[in-house]
Design a protein around this nucleic acid. Sequence first.
DNA 1: CGTGATGATGTCGGTTACTGACATCACCCT
DNA 2: AGGGTGATGTCAGTAACCGACATCATCACG
Lengths: 187, 187
Amino acid sequence: MVRWEPGTPERLQAAALELFATRGYEQTTAAEIAQSVGLTERTFFRHFADKREVLFHGQQLFVAGFLEGARATPGDAAPLEVVRAALGSAAGFFGDERRPHSRRRQTVIDANPALQERELHKMVGLADALRDLLRERGVAEPAATLAARVGTLVFEVSFATWIAEGEERSIDTIQAVVFAELVALVQ
Amino acid sequence: MVRWEPGTPERLQAAALELFATRGYEQTTAAEIAQSVGLTERTFFRHFADKREVLFHGQQLFVAGFLEGARATPGDAAPLEVVRAALGSAAGFFGDERRPHSRRRQTVIDANPALQERELHKMVGLADALRDLLRERGVAEPAATLAARVGTLVFEVSFATWIAEGEERSIDTIQAVVFAELVALVQ
DNA sequence: CGTGATGATGTCGGTTACTGACATCACCCT
DNA sequence: AGGGTGATGTCAGTAACCGACATCATCACG
C-alpha cells in the first residue's frame, strides 16, 4: 500500500480533460479538478504552473522527438532537410491509436482562446529551439528563423488536418502533401 | 470644461507602457495603472478585456491596413502576390518616427511570456482573416492557410529586425529581403 | 426652461487563479 | 529506533476580473 497513488500529473490531466470537455474550460475550477482525483487545489498548482498547463503535460516527449530528428541529420544538410527530418521524427508520436484522444483534446483547445494562446506559445518555443539548432550549424538569420517557423507551420497545418473529422491518412502522408503545397506556393 | 478627459484608452495605454517598462509587467497592478491617470480599476477593465489588452489597443488600424492591401489586389492574383501586397500596405504603419515607441513596447512584450502569448494569438488572428480572404478568392486548403501564415511570419521576422538596435533600414526594405530569403530557402 | 434619456464613471461585493509559509506523515536509510 | 525526504494538506493573502447598482454632467426634446 503506497502512501500516494503514482502518476499524479497524469491523473490530474485526465480529470481536467474530462471536465473541460463536459463543463467547459472556464466553468471548471482548478479546485474541482483536484477534488475529482482526491487532491487539493494547492497540489494541483504544485504540479502545474497554471491551469492551462494541465493540458500540455507530456509534450516534452514530442518536442524531444522533433529536435532529435533534426539533430540526427548530417551537419551539412540544407535547412529545409533538417526541418523535414524533424517533422518525420515527430510524426512517430501520432500513431492512429492516438487520434481519438488528440481530437478530444484539440476540441477543448479550439474552444478556448486562453488555451490557444498557450498552444501557439509552445509551438513558437519549439521553433525557437529548432532555430538555435540551425544557428549552431552555421545557418544565418533570417534563414534559421524562417526555416524553423516554416517547420512548425507545416506541422500545425498537418496536425489540424490529421485531426479533422473523417480524415484517415497518416500524419506522415499529410505532412508530405502539406510540404509539397508549401513548396509549390513559394515560386 | 468637459466631464471626462477624452482618449481614456490611450491615456491608460501610455500609463501602462510607462509602468510596465519601469516596474515590470507583473509588478504593476491594473489598479495602479488606472490610478496613475485618475481612474479606478473597474474603469480600466471596462476599456480592456484584460490586463494584457492595454498594450494592443490601436492594432485594428494595422490589421485593417494589412487586409486592405490584400483586398486591393486583383481577384486573380497569385496567393503570394496577395500576401506581398498585404505586407507592403502594412509597412505604411511603421514609419521611422514610430520606431522608438515600437522598440520600447516590444522590449516590454519580449520580457513577459503572458504578453508574448497574446501577441502570437493576435498574429494568428490576422493570418486567419487573410486566409479567409484567400478562400473567398477560390484558394483551396491548405494553400490558403499556408500563404496567410507565411505572410504573418515574414512580417514578424521583418518587424523584429526593424526593431533591432542599430537597424536603420525601412521595414519595406527589410520585408523584401526576408521575403527573398524565404523564397531562396524553399527550393 | 424643465426633464428625462444617455453614457462614462465610481462603489461594492464576490469568485477564482495563484503563492508563500508552515505543518503532517508515510516511507526509507542507517 | 530515529532522523531525513518528499508529496501533500492547511491557511492566509494578493490580484485579476465580473455583475449589479448608484452617480451625475451633458444633451435632445418638448
